[in-house]
Nucleic acid binder design. Structure first.
Lengths: 170, 170
DNA sequence: GTTGGACATGTCAATAGTGGAATGTCATCA
DNA sequence: TGATGACATTCCACTATTGACATGTCCAAC
């Protein structure tokens, strides 16, 4: 149910068309809340029908630029502040670890090692990303940096855990 | 698509009925791969039709005890070893952080503080859980411990990050 | 003996997410 | 002018997930 809020959040930052939002989903949101084009346009239609967003302007090629309405802002704030966050999300990665007893120990170690490797890889990519972006003093930058830092810490944790885990299996 | 593999993994450990598996989903798997009863029975039907599990025995009250077949084991191993793990899962929590600019700074700080709090809480629960379970020397225990340790490290990371993040917003 | 709770499965409707096809517009460059 | 590629939306079929409802059995306690 959070695709809705992702869309509202982006439009709260600045107005845009479905196409614009799609680009933002591919770039900034890819590792937080991926969404496909069909989902996105569907949600835009529903949000407009619900009066949470409105067409600000129509452009060439049928482009419809949306902006958030007062009702939409209210829904966004309500979700941010008043709605209880859910539990931890599904993790196919951990699910595998759980069942690693079904394969030979050296294969299990191999899998754990590759988890460590992907943590390292992710760490590297995030650090590179950090230098690429030109951070301003605005809110967007502030909270974007918090999310990025979360990702970095997560990656480090995963790498360290995987190194520890490989030793446990020996 | 991993509900299927969660079911196969549990049946690879030991045979059981849908009801048994449901209990295991509620207990051990709740924070890794939650599943509802309707999903579970549906998946059992599909897996049986696909020849990956088979009815081992029928008990009272229509109870059907399933066991994994050779084909099922093969599918499980294939998924464990050969299938590329997907990217990071959706995180409604981080999505919120990303949009925290839409509310007042003190509300944002409040939200971050509550994330730290829930990290602490989770840490506590997991440590309690660790002392509750009697760990054996079997595979089940070994890999279960790895998952538990992952959860603990994750919780610590989240708490530390949240404390850092609150300071950033000040 | 009856009643309440654990055992046990099945089905349904609604929403969320995936992946791809179809369609068309506009700007630029050779 | 013709081709290409970015822009832009709509629709469809399929699978996954949620939540609720329906149905019935067995056991123990009162």
């Amino acid at each position: 149910m959070s695709l809705r809020h992702a869309v509202l959040g982006m439009l709260a930052d600045e107005p845009g068309s479905g196409y614009d939002l799609l680009k933002r989903f591919e770039r900034a949101m890819a590792s937080v809340w991926p969404a496909t084009q069909s989902q996105l346009y569907g949600e835009l239609g529903k949000l407009e029908a619900a009066g949470m967003i409105r067409v600000l302007a129509e452009g060439p090629r049928g482009r419809k630029e949306y902006e958030i309405t007062e009702a939409g802002l209210e829904e966004l704030r309500h979700w941010l502040i008043e709605v209880e966050p859910g539990g931890p999300p599904r993790s196919a990665t951990l699910l595998r670890v759980y069942f690693l007893g079904s394969v030979a120990p050296d294969q299990a170690r191999g899998y754990l090692a590759s988890m460590g490797e992907s943590g390292r890889e992710r760490e590297r990519r995030l650090e590179e990303l950090e230098t690429t972006i030109d951070w301003g003093e605005d809110n967007q930058s502030l909270y974007g940096r918090l999310v990025l830092e979360w990702g970095k810490r997560f990656s480090v944790m995963q790498r360290e855990w995987a190194e520890w885990a490989v030793k446990q299996v020996e």
